[in-house]
Simulated scan of single mutants.
Amino acid sequence: MTAADNRCRLVLIAPDHSDTDACVKMMEDALKGGDVASVIIPQYGLDDRLFQDRAEKLVPVIQAAGAAALVVDNSQVAGRAKADGLHVSGAVADLAEAIEKHAPKLIVGGGNAKERHIALEIGDAQPDYVFFGRLEGDIKPEAHSKNLALGEWWAAMIEIPCIVMGGTAIESALAVAQTGAEFVALRLAVFEVPERAAAVVAEINALLDEKAPRFDG
Rank of each mutant, 00 (worst) to 15 (best):
V164C: 03
L120H: 11
L148N: 02
A91Q: 11
G167V: 03
I160T: 13
Q63P: 00
V200F: 03
P104I: 09
L31I: 03
G180F: 07
D209M: 12
E171G: 10
E152G: 10
P161E: 05
N205C: 05
A103G: 09
A98P: 01
N147A: 13
A119K: 02
L188E: 13
V130A: 08
T179S: 08
G33A: 06
A30L: 05
D124L: 13
V59C: 01
E136M: 14
R196H: 14
Q63V: 07
V108G: 04
I122L: 14
L95N: 01
A143F: 02
R80G: 06
F51C: 06
K101C: 10
D53Q: 12
A91F: 12
A93Y: 12
D16L: 15
R187T: 10
G217D: 09
A65I: 07
R187F: 11
I170Q: 11
A69I: 07
F131R: 02
G45L: 07
K114C: 12
V108I: 10
N74I: 04
D84G: 09
L50D: 06
I122G: 01
A68R: 15
W154P: 00
E159A: 13
D5G: 02
A64F: 08
G109M: 06
A155W: 08
N112Q: 12
V108S: 05
L186E: 04
G180V: 05
D73V: 07
V190Q: 05
V24W: 04
A177S: 08
E210F: 11
E115T: 14
H144C: 13
H117S: 15
L106R: 10
Q43D: 13
V130C: 07
D124C: 10
L70K: 04
V184L: 05
E195I: 12
A125Y: 02
R134N: 13
E159T: 13
M157K: 15
V24F: 06
I163D: 00
K57L: 14
G34W: 03
I139A: 15
M1S: 12
G133N: 02
L31A: 03
A83E: 03
D16R: 15
V200Y: 01
A206G: 09
I118L: 14
A202T: 06
S38H: 12
G85W: 03
L174W: 04
L188R: 15
A156M: 11
Q63K: 11
V88Q: 05
L12G: 00
E28W: 04
G45D: 07
G110V: 08
G111C: 07
A3N: 12
L174I: 07
M26N: 03
V72E: 10
I62N: 02
K211Q: 14
V92W: 00
T2H: 15
L208S: 00
K57R: 14
Q43A: 13
I118N: 04
S89Q: 11
S38K: 13
V11P: 00
V201A: 08
L120Y: 13
F191E: 00
I41D: 01
